[in-house]
Simulated scan of single mutants.
Amino acid sequence: MNALTGGKLKLVQAALRLITETRSLTSLGLRELAREAGLNPNTFYRHFKNLDEFGLQVLEYIAEDMKSGVRELRRMAESSEQASHDTVTFVYHYFLANPAATTVAVRELHGPSPVLRNALESQLDASANEMAEDIIERQLVSAVPPETIHEISRMTIRYILFRAMDYLEKPDQRAIIQLETERFINRQFRGAMVDELSENGLQALLNRQR
């Protein structure tokens, strides 16, 4: 659950209401934001030093809103396939229910503010680390080395975000996009398991020939 309250919460929620397909977080004006939140414009500076600090709070709000649900699903999964299916379903449904959050995440990753770009990159890396740790802890792909699990997790998080706008903007293709995303994740882990088994098998063959 998010701990934001009062004016901070109102401003963050106002920003998410104002963001549309043609507007990004960094394009919002302070007066417009305050008016949407039902606050005096001067209230903004009682809570935030500048727009970058406000943007960081918006990104944190979005991340915290999603993380706990995703982790709970992964911790209940009995297989890597179930984990990927449940995670992709939850995340895409979250994006569908919160399109402004998706727009913020996709646009600010390549937006004009280096502060927000770096913060979003850090959030993606943190989500990838949590994903990898959950997979390792549950031994969902035990044949794959931890460093490879972390590598695949980083690719997975970015792939899901890459497909997020397609999922929102192409309702007739949502089932296909979800299936493709699950296949992408599963193929990465299966490929890593095959690589690991192949390397071990080759080494065993070389050892027998010595």
Rank of each mutant, 00 (worst) to 15 (best):
T87F: 06
R107M: 11
N40T: 10
R187Y: 03
S79H: 05
L124A: 13
N50A: 07
R158H: 08
F44Y: 07
V194R: 06
E147T: 14
T181A: 14
R31K: 13
R17A: 08
N42Q: 15
D65A: 15
L33H: 07
T43Y: 06
N129H: 12
T181S: 15
M66F: 09
L39V: 06
F90H: 10
K170S: 05
V88E: 08
K10M: 04
G69D: 11
F54T: 13
I19T: 08
G55N: 06
H47G: 10
L206R: 10
R183P: 02
K49E: 14
E169R: 04
R23N: 07
T102H: 01
G38F: 02
G69M: 07
L28M: 06
F54V: 08
Q123M: 11
T89M: 03
R74Y: 02
I19K: 01
A204P: 05
Y159F: 13
F184K: 01
H85I: 06
M165Y: 05
R23S: 14
L56N: 05
E32W: 03
G191I: 04
R163E: 12
T87W: 02
E72M: 06
D134A: 11
H47C: 12
I176R: 15
I185N: 09
R183I: 10
Y61E: 10
D166G: 08
I176N: 13
A100D: 03
A100H: 00
A132H: 05
Y94R: 05
F90I: 02
D52Y: 04
